[in-house]
Amino acid sequence: MAENKIQSVSKNKKIWQFFWRSWAIQDSWNYERQMNMGFLYGLVPTLDRCYPNENDPEQLEKKKEAYRRHMAFYNCTPQTSAFVLGLSASMEEQYAENTASLNPDSINAMKTSLMGPLSGIGDSFFQGTIRVIAFGLGVSLAQQGSLLGPVLAMVISIIPSVLITWFAAKLGYEGGNAYLQKLQSGNMMDKVMYVCGIVGLMAVGGMVATLIGATTPATFSDGTLVIQDILDSIMPQMIPLALTGAMYALIKKGVKTGWLLVICIVGGIILSSLGILA
């Protein structure tokens, strides 16, 4: 067996490399293999350390093989990808040290099996919950003309992103397999999804009541009976709720996005001209 010396570098430096490179993973997102080049880019420092001597034909072949391996289809939330990068790097190092210790196909198998759950959990946390809350708050402040709105939205977005990426990279590299089993056995995924689901839905419920603000200027015959007052006494913000419900039904019916936008704009002009909504 060929002697293979892996160049060493401090563990913290490696983790920061996974950190920054997982954030850059979408830089060449494409239809064919999506984040494939992004994933390879994340592992480039590791692979270059594993196979430093390109003049050795055996090492060169191994290096090409490894580069090719990580050009495979990949798609996952950037923040949680740090975990997959860390875990892949530790597996690549193990394989480079001793080719008999690991079947290299298992690296891509691991990547493929992690993509689904980690992007599910990552997207519902970052896109479905954090983004919704951050920008729900941000918009309500921005509507009052406060610059604090966008600033607050960014602060709420950045803090969890930094923390999760860093710990994901660290956990993935230092013993991803063990943590993974722990995570799955403790139904951690279900718990996070459940909490995100409740918080997200309640926040959206609050937004329906506070951000739409549609009212009706209509009155009964002599103008003494204001319909909006009647509606408010039954349930404030009833019209926004009804509008959201109607749009939800249209989306569920499978009406195309383009048509829905047309319906919103034309419908708005008609309802406004008829004096039904304001």
Binding site: L243, C264, I265, G268, I269, S272
Partner: peptide, 8 residues
């Protein structure tokens, strides 16, 4: 009308 449309 666009004002209402933005709410919808």
């Amino acid at each position: 009308g666009l004002n209402v449309a933005s709410k919808i």
